[in-house]
C-alpha cells in the first residue's frame, strides 16, 4: 500500500544561526494491506518526522513515497498540492497527537466532516459520527458541544473518532493511545485491529508497550541520523 525509500530530511533552522539538523538519512519503510508497523527508536530518532513525511506534511529533501491510490501508485514526494489533498481525503488518514479544531464547531460535526468530504449524505454522516463518538466513550450530551472545553483525553478521542469514522487504505497514527485511560485504550486497540482486518495498512508511533504489542506485526527501529545530539521532536 505504501513504499518509501531513500528518504532524507534535514531541517535548517535559520533563526538559530542556520543550524542544520539531519533527521532522516536514507530511511525506508514498506507496509502491506492489513499490516501494522510500529516505529521505534529513541527520542530524536525521527519517528514523528518520518510519519509526517509519509503524510506529506514535512517535505522531504530526497527519496520516493509511493502510495497506492485506487489502482495506480502515486509518488507523494513529487505530487502537487491537489493530489495530496485528494490522497488525504480518502486514501491516507492521519491521527495527530492533538486535536486542532475550529472554535465553534461541534464535536459531532468535526467527526462528520471526514465523511462529508467524501460526499456522504449529511444525515448518514451525522449518524455514523455519533456512533463512533459513543464507541470512544463521548456521551451523546457532549456531541453538540465544541471540544475546546473538553478534557485532554476527550479531545484526543474526538480526534481519533474523526479518523476512525471512515475507512482508509493507509492510516498513520502518532501516539493514538497517549492521554487515554485503560478502557479507552482497549477500545482504540480494538479499532486498530478491526481496520487491519479490513485491509488497512497501519503505521504507528506508540510509547505504550502493552497496546503496541497487541497491534504490531513488525517494528521498525530508527536510529538518529549522523551524530546530531540535539533531539528534534516536532511540537
Amino acid at each position: 500500500m505504501i513504499r518509501a525509500e531513500g528518504l532524507d530530511k534535514t531541517f535548517t533552522l535559520h533563526l538559530q544561526g542556520g543550524v542544520r539538523l539531519a533527521v532522516l538519512r536514507d530511511a525506508a519503510i514498506t507496509v502491506r494491506a492489513g499490516e501494522c508497523v510500529v516505529l521505534a527508536g529513541p527520542s530524536g530518532a525521527g519517528k514523528s518526522t518520518l510519519l509526517r513525511a509519509l503524510y506529506g506534511n514535512y517535505r522531504i529533501d530526497r527519496g520516493r513515497i509511493m502510495v497506492r491510490q485506487d489502482d495506480a501508485m502515486v509518488d507523494l514526494a513529487q505530487a502537487d498540492p491537489q493530489t495530496i489533498i485528494a490522497l488525504r481525503r480518502a486514501t491516507l488518514g492521519y491521527v495527530s497527537q492533538f486535536l486542532r479544531a475550529m472554535p465553534r464547531v461541534a464535536a459531532r460535526d468535526i467527526v462528520a466532516e471526514t465523511l462529508l468530504a467524501r460526499s456522504l449524505e449529511p444525515a448518514i454522516a451525522q449518524r455514523r459520527a455519533a456512533a463512533m463518538l459513543e464507541r470512544l466513550g463521548i456521551a451523546p450530551r457532549l456531541h453538540a458541544l465544541p471540544p475546546a472545553t473538553f478534557s485532554g483525553g476527550e479531545q484526543q478521542r474526538v480526534n481519533l473518532a474523526r479518523s476512525f469514522v471512515a475507512a482508509w487504505p493507509i492510516l498513520l497514527l502518532d501516539e493514538p493511545t497517549a492521554s487515554l485511560d485503560s478502557a479507552n485504550r482497549d477500545e482504540v486497540v480494538r479499532l486498530i485491529n478491526e481496520v487491519k482486518s479490513a485491509g488497512t495498512a497501519v503505521i504507528g508511533i506508540l510509547h505504550d508497550t502493552a497496546s503496541r504489542d497487541r497491534i504490531a506485526d513488525r517494528t521498525l527501529t530508527l536510529t538518529p541520523a549522523v551524530d546530531d545530539t540535539a533531539a528534534l521532536e516536532p511540537a
Binding site: 533552522l13 535559520h14 533563526l15 509526517r52 506529506g56 506534511n57 514535512y58 517535505r59 489533498i85
Partner: peptide, 21 residues
Amino acid sequence: HGLTDQVLDDPHHEYTQLLVA
C-alpha cells in the same frame, strides 16, 4: 508556497520560520 500545513509545520524560508515562531 505550498499546502498550508506544509508551509506552517515545515517552513523552509527564513522569513516563514520567523512568522511561524
